[in-house]
Write a protein that binds this DNA or RNA. Structure first.
Lengths: 254, 254
DNA sequence: CACTGCGGTCGACATTGTCGACCGCCTGTC
DNA sequence: GACAGGCGGTCGACAATGTCGACCGCAGTG
């Protein structure tokens, strides 16, 4: 198997670097961070700029991600079959549960949100499509870990990052949680990534029964939980939506 | 000035091809469409796949855009200064006008929507962030054409595409409309791109008075227009929002 | 069974991408 | 004001790579 094309891999690394914390970087910073010669980094940045994937601030000379990524990202969503088939079911789930609904797929070492239905109320909400969630501490992530061996491989060994006092950080605990998820067919995450937030997620499969994603509801602990546990009626709603989406993707009757 | 890096330009062309009409293409289709050798196309696709920019359906062998584009597209939005500063003003404009609000920037030969506030009602709406609008027939596009010479250059010579009977298709008419926009400081588009839809847009400038984008409201003709013209109160609201956003970007008092 | 076209691999080699050396400009320091 | 340092950027030699024609196995069709 031949290796990757070096300049493409380097370009991808530059774009990922620009997507990271600092977000605007100079030529020399990019070259140093990726251990490239300045002429090399410049050649790649110049071409990425010509193609719209990178922009350069004319005043500071700093580089940042470009608009073509947004456009192609939207095109990715347009053609995403799972998302297309889930749209209506996700709306229904938001209405039935009164909570925010997320649709996520495994991407690199986390869960990529590909669809987001706002909670049907008047509160201000921020669209999460395109953002990543951790695998070990979210309902979506736990579902993918339970059913997708690739996800488990991506997670690696612990200890994992602790976001709240309730986050599971040991691999053994995360694996036990995955076994529980498989046993009962759904996952929950109560204040494990964000304080005050609880979620319930379930698996989506394609017509070959391969895991292709997960759907979840997410909301305030006070609404999602009762007597210390997530509400069974919400669990039922999430699982029902997951089954409906799976059927639309061609998975047979369960 | 040296040319672009060939393999990067080719990779960009492949991704744009996959973003086009058909959206899922086989190796040979990609090679033929871009006049590349199959080995060349395969090498590029293999690397794009490894980096997450392209995915291959294991059953059909077809290639499509990958999830990393969505993630980087979202990162582009996160760092987009114009959008960050416009968020609150856009929300205010949606509330004040009762209509959908779009924020757009010039990108290649059109307007890229970088922010979208839903009309504050219960109707089902589709998020347009990441989509492109034409330059010659939308309020956002007309504003950019009026103030941004780069936009005018990207538009080229007519005749332009006619979307409705009211679309301006001759370059002279579009230029006259741009002059009118400069004269009165705002643009409108009444059923020029979509039947039954009217929009009002105004320019956003940065601290050096460079045009950096435009904001508009968009809604049903029956609500946006009165006696055959767009409502003056809505024009005032859009212009006010545009000035506020420009000030936040450092443009001085007008 | 033969044919066609698919995705994919391989290796020779021509072309390109790489990178060290150098440039002008800007900023900070003395 | 002079100087040093570091910036973005260019240039051209050349080593390394990306290109592509030839070929492969497989699946679908007649």
């Amino acid at each position: 198997m031949p290796g990757p094309i070096q300049s493409l891999s380097r370009a991808a690394a530059i774009m990922r670097l620009l997507a990271g914390g600092e977000r605007r970087l100079g030529l020399s910073e990019v070259a140093t961070a990726l251990d490239l010669a300045k002429g090399t980094a410049h050649g790649i940045l110049r071409t990425l700029q010509q193609e719209g994937f990178v922009e350069q601030d004319p005043e500071s000379g700093k580089y940042q991600l470009g608009a073509e990524l947004l456009r192609l990202g939207q095109s990715y969503l347009d053609v995403h079959e799972l998302r297309a088939r889930a749209l209506v079911w996700a709306d229904d789930l938001a209405r039935a549960s009164g909570e925010t609904v997320y649709l996520g797929v495994l991407h690199q070492r986390g869960v990529l949100i590909v669809h987001h239905v706002f909670r049907p109320d008047d509160t201000r909400q921020v669209l999460e499509v395109g953002s990543m969630q951790p695998l070990h501490s979210t309902a979506l992530g736990k579902v993918l870990l339970a059913y997708d061996p690739v996800a488990r491989g991506e997670l690696g060994e612990g200890p994992f990052e602790s976001y709240t006092p309730r986050t599971l950080t040991e691999a053994a605990d995360v694996d036990a949680e995955a076994a529980l998820t498989r046993e009962r067919g759904w996952a929950d995450a109560v204040e494990e990534t964000w304080e005050g937030v609880a979620s319930i997620g379930a698996l989506i499969q394609d017509r070959r029964r391969n895991p292709v994603g997960a759907v979840c509801i997410s909301g305030a602990v006070e609404r999602v939980c009762e007597d210390g546990f997530v509400k069974p009626s919400l669990v039922a709603s999430v699982r029902s939506a997951a089954r409906a989406i799976s059927r639309d993707l061609g998975a047979g009757r369960f």
